[in-house]
Design a protein around this nucleic acid. Structure first.
Length: 104
DNA sequence: CTTGTGACGCATC
DNA sequence: AGATGCGCCACAA
């Protein structure tokens, strides 16, 4: 498994999250076909910059992981797409994205 | 080759 | 609920 395969697979998964929905790092990794690679999702999002809808990826339970300043930005972007929060977390029950099948 | 690092996840306390 | 510890895995130094 090399960086290219992983990053492209992860990128695809992230791009499949529709506007108004979110997914956790673990879900993205699993959807990409690599269940234990949530940490690589972080690396990819960091590196990719604004090419991907990075703000649609949150921590388990809808938790925003970024430091306060950036967290606020992510929250705004999500709210613009209609994602609602309960306190500091996304209401996963309502906005969690479910992949229908593992993309290849 | 060895260590430290991440926008993590989960069990425990 | 908040804090700690450990597992996880590619990558940079």
């Amino acid at each position: 498994m090399n960086r290219e395969v992983l990053s492209s697979a992860i990128s695809r998964a992230v791009l499949e999250i529709p506007a108004g929905k979110v997914a956790t790092y673990g879900q993205v990794a699993a959807a990409a076909g690599y269940p234990r690679y949530h940490r690589q999702v972080v690396q990819v999002l960091n590196k990719s910059g604004d090419v991907l809808p990075w703000y649609r990826v949150v921590g388990a339970g809808g938790r925003i992981c970024l430091p306060p300043d950036e967290a606020h930005e992510q929250r705004q972007l999500l709210e613009v797409e209609g994602v609602r929060f309960t306190g500091t977390r996304v209401r996963m029950k309502d906005y969690e994205h479910h992949w229908q099948r593992e993309p290849e």
